[in-house]
């Protein structure tokens, strides 16, 4: 007995989710960030972010199809983290790494925030 492990399965699944997002297929929530709108899949947001987990695990919010984030959240930082959720790649431009770190802290994505912090320290 044993199994055949398809080593690239996780990546293939995530790539398909990103294709669905880019075509707005089966997206079930719109996130409003300081005037910008992002379509996404709740399941991916909840799987990647402690903040969204706490929002959508609340039965009152489970059926929400749109939520607005605190105005202090930077749309560029959110965009970078949303792309990360769907690609596993974190876009790190020097000019945006602090915004990305602060947004990761807000979204309760501690491992990403720690990585940004280490990146910032390594640059100074």
């Amino acid at each position: 007995d044993g199994c055949i492990q398809f080593t690239r399965h996780a990546g293939d699944v995530l790539l398909n989710f990103n294709r669905l997002r880019s075509r707005n297929i089966l997206t079930d929530v719109t996130i409003q960030v300081d005037g910008q709108q992002f379509h996404a899949h709740k399941a991916i947001l909840v799987a990647c972010s402690g903040f969204f987990y706490s929002v959508f695990m609340d039965p009152e919010n489970a059926n929400l199809s749109a939520i607005s984030l605190d105005p202090k959240v930077d749309p560029k930082g959110f965009s970078i983290l949303l792309d990360f959720m769907y690609t596993s790649c974190l876009d790190l431009k020097d000019s945006l790494v602090l915004v990305t770190m602060n947004t990761a802290i807000y979204l309760q994505m501690e491992h990403v925030a720690d990585t940004c912090h280490r990146f910032i320290k390594s640059r100074h």
């Binding site: 007995d1 044993g2 199994c3 055949i4 492990q5 398809f6 080593t7 690239r8 399965h9 293939d12 699944v13 790539l15 398909n16 294709r19 669905l20 880019s22 075509r23």
Partner: peptide
């Protein structure tokens, strides 16, 4: 599944959703 007679398949595992139809 690590270890117990695991055969690793490196190829694609599922269909690829196209960028557009």
């Amino acid at each position: 599944y690590e270890g117990v007679n695991t055969i690793k398949e490196m190829g694609r595992s599922i269909h690829e959703i196209p960028r557009q139809d």
